[in-house]
């Protein structure tokens, strides 16, 4: 499985990577902003995207629109703080698949993967 993690927080990316590796997932691409994420998305097979909402330069919503212009089916899961949950409806209108509230737990991450990607994790 190929996972793309997009978050301007290095700590959050590292925690997500650690969790995914513990689930046996080795093909993990990470991006600190939306522009890098788009380049990685175009250059690599990606089965699921986990993306922060509140990022500098390109917001999670703008990134979502760019991804949907390229691929309409890949699951895109927004990572939000509780305070941004109100934005989820707007994101759903633009094609977000699901959301994960920060701070996420390994169980929460695994549940989202199991829901959206055919996996044995």
């Amino acid at each position: 499985m190929n996972v793309l993690i997009v978050d301007d927080s290095e700590m959050t990316r590292m925690v997500a990577k650690k969790t995914l590796k513990a689930l046996g997932i080795e093909n993990i691409h990470e991006a600190a902003d939306g522009q890098i994420a788009i380049e990685l998305f175009k250059a690599n097979p990606v089965d699921v995207v986990f993306s922060d909402w509140n990022m500098p330069n390109m917001s999670g919503l703008e990134l979502l629109k760019e991804i949907r212009a390229i691929n309409t089916t890949v699951p895109v899961i927004m990572i939000t703080t509780e305070g941004s949950r109100g934005k989820v409806m707007e994101a759903i209108q633009h094609g977000v698949s699901d959301y994960l509230v920060k701070p996420f737990t390994p169980v929460g991450l695994r549940e989202k993967l199991a829901k959206w990607v055919q996996t044995t994790v």
Binding site: S9, T80, T81, E82, G83, R85, K102, P103
Partner: peptide, 10 residues
């Protein structure tokens, strides 16, 4: 700080 402020905002 981001997570605490986000949770308080909610």
């Amino acid at each position: 700080a981001n997570v605490i402020a986000g949770s308080a905002k909610d």
